[in-house]
Measured scan of single mutants.
Amino acid sequence: SEFQINEQVLASWSDSRFYPAKVTAVNKDGTYTVKFYDGVVQTVKHIHVKA
């Protein structure tokens, strides 16, 4: 599913667990740039983002 900029989502971290994050960019290659609550910004594949 498509997510929008500033949408609150759950994004997987390197430990494969999902954490609350905010979408900061929707990228043309189908990835999302997300910002976790601790301030870390990461680009993740769409399969690693869920509502």
Rank of each mutant, 00 (worst) to 15 (best):
S1G: 12
S1D: 10
S1A: 11
S1M: 13
S1H: 14
S1N: 12
E2R: 14
E2N: 11
E2M: 11
E2D: 10
E2V: 11
F3E: 05
F3Y: 09
F3V: 07
F3R: 05
F3S: 03
F3K: 03
F3M: 04
Q4D: 08
Q4L: 10
Q4R: 09
Q4A: 10
Q4G: 08
Q4E: 10
Q4F: 09
I5E: 08
I5F: 05
I5P: 07
I5Q: 06
I5Y: 05
I5V: 13
N6D: 12
N6L: 08
N6T: 01
N6S: 03
E7I: 09
E7D: 15
E7Q: 12
E7Y: 01
E7T: 08
Q8R: 09
Q8V: 15
Q8S: 12
Q8F: 12
V9K: 02
V9D: 02
V9T: 03
V9I: 09
V9N: 02
V9M: 04
V9W: 04
V9G: 02
V9Y: 03
L10E: 07
L10D: 05
L10S: 02
L10Y: 09
L10I: 07
L10Q: 04
L10W: 09
L10V: 06
A11L: 06
A11H: 03
A11P: 02
A11Y: 01
A11Q: 01
S12W: 14
S12R: 15
S12N: 06
S12K: 15
S12V: 11
S12G: 09
S12E: 15
W13M: 13
W13N: 10
W13V: 12
W13K: 15
S14C: 12
S14E: 13
S14Y: 09
S14K: 12
S14R: 11
S14F: 11
D15W: 00
D15K: 00
D15Q: 00
S16M: 07
S16W: 04
S16K: 10
S16P: 04
S16G: 15
S16C: 14
R17M: 14
R17C: 15
R17E: 13
R17W: 10
F18I: 05
Y19P: 01
Y19E: 07
Y19H: 06
Y19W: 10
P20F: 10
P20Q: 04
P20L: 07
A21C: 04
A21F: 03
A21Q: 01
A21P: 03
K22S: 08
K22I: 15
K22Y: 13
K22G: 05
K22L: 15
K22W: 12
K22T: 15
K22M: 15
K22C: 14
V23D: 00
V23L: 03
V23M: 00
T24F: 02
T24P: 00
T24V: 15
T24E: 10
A25H: 10
A25Y: 05
A25E: 07
V26H: 05
V26M: 07
V26I: 13
V26D: 04
N27Y: 06
N27H: 11
N27I: 02
N27K: 01
N27V: 01
K28V: 10
K28Y: 09
K28I: 11
K28L: 11
K28C: 08
K28W: 11
D29V: 00
D29C: 02
D29M: 00
D29E: 03
D29S: 00
G30Y: 04
G30H: 04
T31N: 05
T31I: 03
Y32E: 03
Y32C: 07
Y32P: 02
T33C: 08
T33L: 08
T33W: 04
T33K: 05
T33M: 07
T33H: 02
T33R: 04
V34A: 00
V34L: 04
V34T: 01
V34N: 00
K35P: 02
K35C: 10
F36K: 00
F36D: 01
F36R: 06
F36T: 02
F36M: 05
F36Y: 05
F36H: 00
Y37K: 07
Y37E: 14
Y37W: 13
Y37G: 08
Y37N: 11
D38H: 08
D38Q: 06
D38R: 04
D38T: 11
G39D: 08
G39S: 04
G39C: 08
G39L: 06
G39R: 02
V40Y: 10
V40G: 07
V40D: 08
V41F: 08
V41K: 04
V41C: 08
V41A: 03
Q42P: 03
Q42H: 11
Q42D: 06
Q42W: 10
Q42T: 13
Q42F: 07
Q42A: 15
T43L: 05
T43G: 02
T43A: 06
T43W: 04
V44I: 09
V44E: 02
V44K: 03
K45M: 11
K45G: 12
H46T: 11
H46Q: 14
H46V: 12
H46W: 09
H46M: 12
H46R: 15
I47N: 12
I47S: 14
I47G: 12
I47E: 14
I47F: 10
I47A: 11
H48C: 14
H48V: 08
H48G: 07
H48Q: 14
V49N: 05
V49I: 14
V49R: 11
V49D: 05
V49F: 04
K50P: 06
K50Q: 10
K50M: 11
K50E: 05
K50L: 12
A51W: 06
A51R: 13
A51D: 07
A51F: 07
A51Y: 06
